[in-house]
Amino acid sequence: MGKRRKPSPPSRARLAVLTTAVAGGAVLAAGTAHAEPTPTLASVKEQVDKLNEEAEQSIERYNGFQARQQSLQGDANRLQDKVARGQETMNELRTRLGAVAGEQYRTNGIDPSVQLMLDSDPAGYLERAAAQNQVVEGQTALLKQARDEQRRLDQDRAEAAAMLAQLDSVGASLGEEKKQVQARLAQAQALLNKLSAADRAKLNAQESAEKAKAAAQQAAAADRASRAAGRPDLGAAAPASGRAGDIVKFATAQLGKPYEWGATGPGTFDCSGLTGAAYRAAGVKLPRMSQDQWNAGARIARGDLQPGDLVFFYSDLHHVGLYIGDGKMIHAPRTGKNVEVLAISAIPYMGAVRPA
């Protein structure tokens, strides 16, 4: 067999070409791996809308925790006042028993029942005194009053302690829900910041147009209301009177005001904050959360809707608006938007309620 010929080494020129090609490929691969394409306006809007919907769910939970916290705080304050009054009563009773003891000392010595009552553990005394039957006839009423008051005081203290523990728990939940809202809104803003300058300009133009539209709706409604004796006329919406008229009139006056989560007016609102404020203007108090407002009245079929009814959206009822007729509502949409008129068919409709 003949000897195999060794392949000749590549020339310097060929090595240079190969090296350049490999290096160029590596740079291209690295650039492909790390470059982030500019997101489109449509994709960002889709993600931002989803984050805002999730934020609104958290906002309604936040509103519920906040309302619960306020209720618990009021109950805790009343209980603590009651405990303070009970302690004052006990102090007065012990002072009276001290006077009895002093009188007995000057005569025949302190009665064992009174001496025990003045002990540092009056609750313990009351049990021992009852067991030993040491209460003399002249002190029965006073000692019985002291015993009953001590029992009430102990019960009120235990109830106040439990109430404060609940308050701490709700406060922790409120803080956690607030973080969730802030995190989702921050994510949405970060996505918006990634838009190209052209897309940001388009989005700003859209938002400006929406604000201008809401302002025009508000001005037109106010003008029509003043010319129609306070009865707003939004397009073909059915006229409302009485309580419903007051609700629609109030809601109309809020058109164009900014959405702010957790707000109930007068300058800013979230969705349930707006509906609650509108009903307050008509003398009706609604619960704070949209889900609780769902249980604040009778269910109304879509075909029976009347101005002033509450209309609810999404499967978990985390959004609520005020029906004004003609298939439209006034609602506070989300962060970055203003109170506006919107067709109830524009978002997932779930049902309606007419509060009593």
Score class of each variant (00 low, 15 high):
163 M>L: 14
152 R>V: 06
168 D>I: 03
163 M>N: 09
159 E>A: 04
154 D>A: 13
157 R>Q: 10
157 R>N: 06
147 R>V: 06
163 M>H: 08
147 R>N: 14
164 L>T: 04
160 A>L: 02
167 L>F: 08
174 L>I: 03
171 G>F: 02
156 D>V: 04
174 L>D: 09
168 D>S: 11
155 Q>C: 02
154 D>F: 06
172 A>F: 06
157 R>Y: 03
175 G>A: 13
166 Q>P: 06
169 S>M: 05
165 A>G: 11
172 A>Y: 05
152 R>H: 09
151 R>N: 14
162 A>L: 04
175 G>D: 14
166 Q>M: 07
157 R>W: 00
154 D>P: 01
176 E>N: 11
168 D>P: 02
153 L>A: 12
159 E>Y: 00
168 D>Q: 12
147 R>I: 08
171 G>K: 00
175 G>T: 14
173 S>M: 11
173 S>K: 08
149 E>K: 05
165 A>E: 15
158 A>W: 01
162 A>H: 08
163 M>T: 14
152 R>D: 15
162 A>Y: 00
151 R>Q: 15
171 G>H: 00
165 A>V: 10
154 D>G: 09
147 R>L: 09
173 S>F: 05
166 Q>E: 14
172 A>N: 11
163 M>S: 14
149 E>M: 10
158 A>S: 11
147 R>F: 09
150 Q>T: 12
173 S>E: 15
151 R>P: 02
176 E>G: 10
176 E>R: 05
172 A>C: 06
162 A>C: 03
158 A>N: 08
172 A>D: 14
174 L>C: 07
158 A>D: 11
168 D>T: 12
175 G>L: 09
149 E>S: 15
176 E>C: 03
152 R>K: 14
175 G>R: 07
167 L>K: 03
162 A>M: 04
168 D>H: 07
162 A>G: 05
163 M>C: 10
154 D>V: 11
162 A>N: 10
168 D>G: 05
153 L>W: 11
161 A>L: 09
161 A>M: 07
161 A>V: 09
150 Q>W: 14
176 E>H: 11
163 M>F: 09
163 M>K: 08
175 G>E: 12
152 R>I: 07
149 E>H: 09
156 D>S: 09
155 Q>D: 15
159 E>R: 00
170 V>G: 00
160 A>G: 02
163 M>Q: 12
169 S>A: 14
159 E>H: 02
148 D>H: 05
150 Q>C: 06
158 A>T: 10
159 E>C: 00
166 Q>A: 07
171 G>L: 01
167 L>N: 04
169 S>Y: 02
168 D>W: 01
156 D>C: 03
167 L>S: 03
171 G>Q: 04
176 E>V: 07
157 R>D: 04
151 R>K: 12
156 D>N: 10
169 S>Q: 13
165 A>H: 11
173 S>G: 11
163 M>E: 14
172 A>M: 08
156 D>P: 01
150 Q>R: 07
148 D>P: 06
175 G>F: 06
